[in-house]
Design a binder for these strands. Sequence first.
DNA 1: TTGCTTTTTGACCAAACGGTCAAGACCACG
DNA 2: CGTGGTCTTGACCGTTTGGTCAAAAAGCAA
Lengths: 232, 232
Amino acid sequence: MREKASLRGLWATGETGIAPPGEAGSDTRMVMEEPRTRIQRKNRETILEAALEVFSQHGFRGATLDMIAGAAGLSKPNLLYYFPSKEAIHVTLLSQLMDTWLDPLRELDAGGDPMQELRGYVRRKLELSRDFPRESRLFANEIVQGAPRMQEGLETDLKALVDEKAEVIRGWIAEGRIADVDPHHLIFSIWALTQHYADFDVQVRAVLGPSRDPLAEAEQFLDTLFTRLLAP
Amino acid sequence: MREKASLRGLWATGETGIAPPGEAGSDTRMVMEEPRTRIQRKNRETILEAALEVFSQHGFRGATLDMIAGAAGLSKPNLLYYFPSKEAIHVTLLSQLMDTWLDPLRELDAGGDPMQELRGYVRRKLELSRDFPRESRLFANEIVQGAPRMQEGLETDLKALVDEKAEVIRGWIAEGRIADVDPHHLIFSIWALTQHYADFDVQVRAVLGPSRDPLAEAEQFLDTLFTRLLAP
DNA sequence: TTGCTTTTTGACCAAACGGTCAAGACCACG
DNA sequence: CGTGGTCTTGACCGTTTGGTCAAAAAGCAA
């Protein structure tokens, strides 16, 4: 299950990093298909990977183009050949992230066994925290600071999906198959508890000391917690 | 219970914002008692209040001295008359915060009724999220970015207190007065769940829509959650 | 090879930033 | 009132930052 590196492979290529110049005259197509050359694909990947590292550690303003360029092994002007601005890199990262972040919730199946479905969701979400902590922190940074570049996505895509799944959960409760809890807050609690282990990693480790394995313990603890909370 | 404004009144005046110059010759006392004049007390307060607003919204690097000065209604050089640097303001804020943040846990009483004590802790922690969200976000910003200015405090003060209280909880479990859960992760779960409502406020509100009251609902939800988790 | 496009970079720029300083305004007290 | 300390600020400084540009290098198809 464990998987190193980033989610890049799974993502559609971003729409924000407007492709390089040099096509005004000769080509009249309206839609520009994604990164054309082998080099472009590779370098955009490299830049986004480096930017994820730097943005997740320092936040948007704390990150500098020089840091990203350094991490990517490219020159600063070269970054700006592939992305029109620092902000474009950041937005690309965020919009790709949004999709990935919601996938585990999308998998929640109204037809499955309620208890198993919800425990599965918790497990998948915790796996994201374990395997993609940088993505989690990138997201956390953005939200804590008021989500200046995401608010719309939250109020449309995210709300729609959550409302839909909340309705599913409400159905399970009505059928008496899980205990009666507010579905929205149930989902929040899953987010809060799982993401905590990625976002507040330093705190968790500082308190537990070096010899314990936070994520492994969390898996058990959270399974117990939600089992007791939801048992009918 | 609700209380506007900040925690300032409760705090000891910080030790980090080395007092203004102008005392080399005439006064030989070793210890300098805190802000001497009425004006100094007032302006240091004003600056810290403004800095809390700005730092919690933009993070350390995202905040500028001009923003803080603007929010405080003072000139930039005037800020630097009261604090030696931007970092000193930030550190003062953080060190004051640490104490306040741990107070609710300190109140956990080994002699009290376990269930009532733990539910009380959750309630107090949630009150902090409701009344002092900026403080919560200041803390979150710092931890998410690796706690560059707090790590020591986490590994000493915080760890010591948590370990102590974890032992208390372990005792309660041994006596069969609450269910068997890992005490450390129980505490983490309280932090995660309560702080989520302050730190991820925009997300919570975006999902719930404008007509619901997140914090009021959370109080009930969390009470239910921990009751079910801990019932022996 | 030639010739054209894509990619890379050193030099450069204007704005923003944290911080300094000397001079002036203000204030309290004899 | 005046005098000495406290407080305030406009002007300024060196550095960092996001971003530009023209020209060189590399890639590639014929």
